[in-house]
Each structure stands twice: as structure tokens, then as C-alpha cells.
């Protein structure tokens, strides 16, 4: 007998339990009593993920190399030739070297902007619709919630929850994430809103001033939040790809191509100390040698006299040294 009264009773109880959990967690928000349950999850699953990542890392690395390239066929041919020559050991050595290079670039970026960072590795990624990853550093390494996470290329996201040896990072592409952004070499500010990396357009930039000039090819850096939490200023975010015009809208929206390759994250850095002075555009990579025809090589004209009202989480950039 499959569908007994007992089965239905258990079904009812468990459904009620999950509905109750959803209600409590939803109403509680950041202070919900069920956050303890997540802490429990970090303690239990964190070490397992650590261990599992060490085992499966070459698998993920190899898979990324094959699928991550646009000219896959050409690359596969070349890789096959290479594979014939290289022994297994050599290949592991290459993976390590790539990681070392990433770390080098990361440290270079940190030095350029004056950030103090803790390097970390991504060990797992979020399920379903959310763009989150967990990294292998936690409160034991001085990580606290609301710290900026970056790579050598640019902004990754912010730390949302910290466990003893792992932390959870909300990526900038997540639909629940919004970052204050500023256009390179003009003071136009806006909000960089995640659209979910699965929707095709990873990031959108909402200019607060709908009359401000914005062109494809302009680059965006982070604006910095109050007290440098969660976002420190000056981190490169991406380049403007296209501009969406919505008639009658109060703001103008641009689709942004991020600097960071969000689907292939490996080595990241967590900013534990913000820079003493705002690095402004210093961290941006050198401008491309052949600019796209629509973009003049000279910086855009001086910004309009009055900056629009800044969003709540992003006060005016600080240029004076802090005490």
C-alpha cells in the first residue's frame, strides 16, 4: 500500500513545516531566527566543500578550457595536439601557473588601488536562479560581512555571510545586487544593477541623470559606499555596450559588459582595508590602443555643473585622506 493515511499525514506536517520556515525567514529578513540554520550549514558543509573542491578542481578546470572559448573547434584541435605532447604532470603544472598568474594580477590591482586584500579561491557556486559563490576564507582570516570582493580584472561582488572557514559572496550579476557606479573620467553616477548572468545581459547601468552623455565604450568604476562597506571606490566594473532608450523614463539604462568573467571565477581577493584615498580611475586597465570608431580618444567634455542626487548607499566620493 503506497498512499496511506500516514503518508498523507507526514506530507501535511512537512509541507506545513516548510511553509512556516519560509514565512519566518521571509518576515525576519536579515535578522531571522533561521540564520542560525545557515551557520550550521556553513559548519557542516564548508569543510566537505573544501575537500571536494581539492578533488574535483582539475575536472572543472579542464571543462572550462574546452567550453569557455568561442572558437571551440580550433582550440580543441590545438589542445588535442598539445595533450599528446604533455604528460599529466605538466598539465597540472600549467593549471597551477595560470592560478599563480591570476594571483599576480590580483596583487598588482590591489597595489594600484591601495587596497589590502586577502586572496581566496572559489570552492562552490549557488544553485538555481541565484548568482552566489562560496570562497575558502572565513572569519578566521579576518573576513567580515559586507566586504568588497574583486579579481585582477574588476569587481566581483560583496561578502554576505561569513562562516568559520568559508564565506558566501553575492556576485554583482545577481538580480538582488546593486552597486553604485561612476562613468570613467566624468562624474556621472548611476546604479549598476545585476540582471542575472542567465538572462544574457549580465549588468545594467542606470544613469540617474537622463540627459547626461553616455556612449558605448565608456568604462565604469565603483563609486564607493558609506564607510567603504560594502563597496570600496575605484574598482573597475565594466564597459558600456549598448544604451537602451525607454521613452518617458526618468533614468537612462545602459547594458554593461563586465570586466570580470563571472562564469569562470577562480582566484578572487577580499578587500579587508579600503584605500586611504579614492583611486578614481587609476585601477582601470590601460585604454585599448585602437578605440572603437564611435569613441573619441580624448576624454569626454567636462561634466555638468550639478551632480544629481546620489543614491542612499553611495555618498559623494572621498578624495581627502581619512584620519
Amino acid at each position: 500500500m503506497n498512499d496511506t493515511r500516514r503518508t498523507r499525514a507526514v506530507l501535511g506536517v512537512l509541507l506545513l513545516a516548510s511553509l512556516a520556515m519560509i514565512t519566518v525567514d521571509y518576515r525576519g529578513g536579515d535578522h531571522s531566527p533561521l540564520r542560525g540554520l545557515r551557520g550550521f550549514g556553513e559548519v557542516i558543509f564548508g569543510p566537505i566543500e573544501h575537500a571536494a573542491t581539492a578533488v574535483v578542481r582539475p575536472v572543472v578546470g579542464a571543462f572550462d578550457t574546452v567550453t569557455g572559448s568561442p572558437g571551440a573547434r580550433r582550440r580543441i584541435n590545438r589542445l588535442e595536439k598539445e595533450n599528446q605532447r604533455l604528460r599529466q604532470q605538466l598539465r597540472t603544472g600549467q593549471i597551477d601557473k595560470r592560478r599563480a598568474d591570476e594571483l599576480d594580477r590580483l596583487l598588482g590591482t590591489a597595489g594600484l588601488g591601495g587596497y589590502r586584500i586577502v586572496p581566496a579561491q572559489v570552492i562552490s557556486a549557488g544553485e538555481g536562479l541565484e548568482d552566489t559563490v562560496s570562497i575558502d576564507v572565513g572569519s578566521g582570516n579576518g573576513i567580515k560581512p559586507d566586504m568588497t570582493v574583486l579579481t585582477g580584472d574588476g569587481l566581483v561582488g560583496r561578502v554576505t555571510r561569513v562562516g568559520p572557514s568559508t564565506s558566501t559572496v553575492l556576485l554583482a550579476t545577481d538580480a538582488a545586487s546593486s552597486v553604485g557606479g561612476r562613468l570613467e573620467s566624468s562624474n556621472e553616477i548611476g546604479i549598476v544593477q545585476g540582471a542575472g548572468r542567465r538572462s544574457g545581459k549580465a549588468l545594467k547601468f542606470q544613469l540617474l541623470d537622463s540627459t547626461a552623455p553616455v556612449r558605448p565604450g565608456q568604462r565604469i568604476v565603483s563609486f564607493g559606499s558609506q564607510g567603504d562597506r560594502p563597496y570600496v571606490p575605484g574598482v573597475p566594473i565594466g564597459t558600456v555596450a549598448t544604451i537602451e532608450r525607454t521613452p518617458g523614463s526618468l533614468t537612462r539604462t545602459a547594458v554593461v559588459r563586465p570586466f570580470v568573467h563571472f562564469t569562470g571565477l577562480d582566484v578572487v581577493g577580499v578587500v579587508v582595508t579600503a584605500p586611504k584615498r579614492n583611486p578614481r580611475d587609476a585601477v582601470l586597465p590601460p585604454a585599448p590602443s585602437t578605440p572603437p570608431p564611435s569613441v573619441p580618444p580624448t576624454p569626454p567634455p567636462s561634466p555638468p555643473p550639478s551632480a544629481p542626487a546620489s543614491p542612499k548607499s553611495t555618498p559623494a566620493p572621498r578624495t581627502t585622506p581619512r584620519g
Binding site: 512537512l14 509541507l15 513545516a17 516548510s18 511553509l19 512556516a20 520556515m21 519560509i22 525567514d25 521571509y26 531571522s32 533561521l34 540554520l37 545557515r38 550550521f40 550549514g41 556553513e42 558543509f45 564548508g46 566543500e49 562552490s124 557556486a125 549557488g126 544553485e127 538555481g128 541565484e130 552566489t132 559563490v133 562560496s134 554576505t160 555571510r161 562562516g163 568559508t166 558566501t168 559572496v169 553575492l170 545577481d174 538582488a176
Partner: peptide
């Protein structure tokens, strides 16, 4: 719902 990088209302997957 509680495995580390998860960031949604607890109980959704359980339901």
C-alpha cells in the same frame, strides 16, 4: 536551502 553559497528564503527548496 542551507548549503553555503545559498542566499534565498529558507524552506523554498524544502517545500
Amino acid at each position: 536551502d542551507i548549503v553555503p553559497p545559498s542566499d534565498h528564503t529558507i524552506g523554498r527548496y524544502a517545500l
